[in-house]
């Protein structure tokens, strides 16, 4: 469709259409090399040998076969109690975190907290709390208050306090100033300003965050039992240790169903809160 002479002429007139500039090619080559090198190194560190891999795949196939059909194996009572514990942990953990996070959030907001140093310190404290995973907190609390769901509640509440306080503080920093000034002009003190000027604006945001955290905590709470902090995770880890794969499958399906229901309910509630 195009002659060699014409091709050469177009090539000469528009070299960049056919080939990137040398600098760009070099940059691309470097970026790709770096990326592939990191990936190759990572794979080399984490991949098992071929034999282990093949054996593992075979084992996985067996597992799936052993999982069918899922049954409760006559332990329905214990399993359901574990599930109830999980939900209780998620609910209480979120609630405790919320109760602690509201005053902390106000204290950590720049427009409420005038002392720069305190504001900065609080923000770093929030980062520290949420930087440690709830599973690590669970290990700590099991050591401190003993095994059981109570340790799980605390393990969920502490990192969530950090995250929620940070989110609340950000929401408070983003409130509309005029409304707060209106309250201030009426001669109010700091607490009244927070209560009537800021809280009405941020309450829907806070509630929506809380529901989202309840959803996410339901998921987290299912696994804390692995380290002894109560909930269905203990049942699950036990079954895996004992090779009861039918019951493992039953518990996983139960978790899936519960999480799906909670997501659905909380999603509807959140939409209603945002719409209102």
């Amino acid at each position: 469709m195009i002659g060699a002479a014409e091709l050469a002429a177009i090539r000469a007139a528009h070299p960049r259409v056919f080939r990137r500039s040398a600098a760009e090619r070099l940059r691309l080559a470097l970026a790709w090399t770096l990326f592939l090198a990191v990936l190759a190194f990572g794979l080399w560190r984490v991949l098992p040998g071929w034999e282990a891999f093949a054996a593992g795949l075979g084992k996985l196939g067996f597992l799936v076969r052993f999982m069918i059909p899922p049954t409760s194996g006559g332990h329905l009572g214990a399993i359901l109690h574990g599930l109830a514990e999980t939900l209780a942990m998620a609910f209480m953990g979120t609630l405790l975190a919320a109760v602690a996070a509201v005053p902390l959030g106000f204290a950590g907001a720049r427009n409420v907290m005038p002392v720069r140093l305190l504001h900065f310190g609080l923000r770093r404290l929030f980062d520290g709390l949420r930087g440690i995973d709830s599973l690590i907190w669970a290990i700590l609390f099991v050591a401190a208050v003993g095994m059981g769901p109570f340790a799980g509640i605390l393990a969920l509440a502490v990192p969530d306090t950090g995250t929620l306080a940070k989110l609340f503080a950000e929401a408070i920093e983003n409130v509309e100033k005029r409304q707060v000034e209106g309250i201030e002009a009426a001669g109010s003190n700091a607490v009244e300003r927070a209560r009537f000027g800021i809280l009405p604006q941020v309450l829907p945001v806070m509630l929506s965050h809380l529901l989202y955290f309840f959803e996410s905590n339901t998921r987290s709470a299912t696994i804390l039992g692995v380290v002894g902090a109560g909930g269905i995770g203990l049942q699950l880890a036990e079954r895996i240790r004992l090779d009861d794969w039918q019951e493992v499958a039953f518990i996983i399906l139960l978790i899936l169903a519960t999480v799906a229901v909670i997501d659905w309910v909380s999603g509807r509630l959140r939409r209603r809160i945002i719409a209102a």
């Binding site: 177009i10 528009h14 259409v17 056919f18």
Partner: peptide, 10 residues
């Protein structure tokens, strides 16, 4: 291909 690019330019 180079031909396609050239045709596009044309």
């Amino acid at each position: 291909t180079a031909e396609e690019r050239a045709a596009a330019i044309r």
